[in-house]
């Protein structure tokens, strides 16, 4: 088994190892779960990417910030009516959240990854070491690994332009910390409501409804949502859960 670990301390060093096809190592949970062998690892721990910075119209999250780190940031918890902590608390357990990183939860995308859906909802931008900036809609239109050839996420930027936007997040799972059967988020912006569904297919799915006629709009959306096979419950059952969660998650003023 051939393993090599490199631990760069600055972005230039990291870029050199990426060119040599080293695999980025963020929190490490996905790597160890998949028990990969014969691998060259690029440990991102010393790149100073675990920041949370508020600016006038946005908040910037370093790719190595942990989920727990985000939950401890009080200002982040207050915006969007508490949408962000509601979503983040559905990710695994406290022990998992102490290790899972922002970048890792996006790139190692699984059907249960919450952050891709949340960032899609919030119109976030994903920024990389090669100085590229992807709107979330583009980034999550395909597997992140396809976009990130010799590239690495360094930062997420969430705009704070709509100050009165409020949101919510709900997850349905067999136990409190289990992978979701269905997980949905909503963001209300004046008359428009964005809805996102995760854990149904590999990539999150985004929809928009008008707040004038929510039940009818949701009835129209639910049959269009793509749902992959899940050994735990049937597709039809997931569709019923989805309808109920969509109705429940939309914030009332």
């Amino acid at each position: 088994m051939a393993i090599e670990i490199s631990i760069p301390t600055n972005i230039s060093q990291a870029k050199k190892y990426l060119k040599k096809k080293f695999t980025p190592l963020a929190g490490g949970t996905t790597l160890l779960l998949h028990r990969q062998k014969n691998i060259q690892l690029l440990d991102l721990n010393k790149l100073n990417l675990s920041y949370i910075k508020f600016q006038k119209n946005s908040v910037r999250l370093g790719a190595m910030a942990t989920i727990s780190g985000l939950l401890e940031e009080k200002k982040l918890n207050k915006i969007f009516g508490g949408l962000i902590p509601q979503a983040l608390l559905t990710i695994g357990s406290t022990l998992n959240r102490n290790m899972i990183t922002v970048g890792g939860n996006i790139v190692g995308i699984h059907s249960w990854s919450v952050l891709p859906g949340l960032l899609l909802l919030l119109d976030a931008k994903i920024k990389t070491i090669q100085k590229k900036s992807y709107p979330a809609k583009k980034f999550f239109s395909q597997s992140p690994k396809k976009i990130l050839q010799n590239d690495l996420i360094t930062e997420i930027e969430i705009p704070l332009i709509q100050k009165n936007a409020i949101g919510g997040w709900q997850k349905m799972s067999l136990t409190e910390t289990d992978y979701p059967l269905v997980s949905v988020g909503a963001l209300k912006l004046d008359k428009n409501i964005r809805l996102v569904a995760v854990a149904l297919t590999l990539l999150p799915q985004l929809f928009e409804v008008n707040s004038d006629n929510i039940p009818d709009e949701i009835d129209a959306i639910v049959p269009r949502v793509k749902i992959s096979h899940d050994i735990r419950v049937s597709i039809e059952y997931k569709r019923e859960i989805l309808k109920a969660l969509f109705m429940d998650v939309i914030p009332t003023d």
């Binding site: 490490g28 949970t29 160890l32 779960l33 440990d43 357990s93 022990l95 998992n96 102490n98 290790m99």
Partner: peptide, 26 residues
Amino acid sequence: RDGQCGACTVLVDGRPISSCLYLAIR
């Protein structure tokens, strides 16, 4: 060995983590 049960919990700089999913080199 899957980050699910917590039997392997240790504190790293005061924070509880699942040591089965944490690289020793870290």
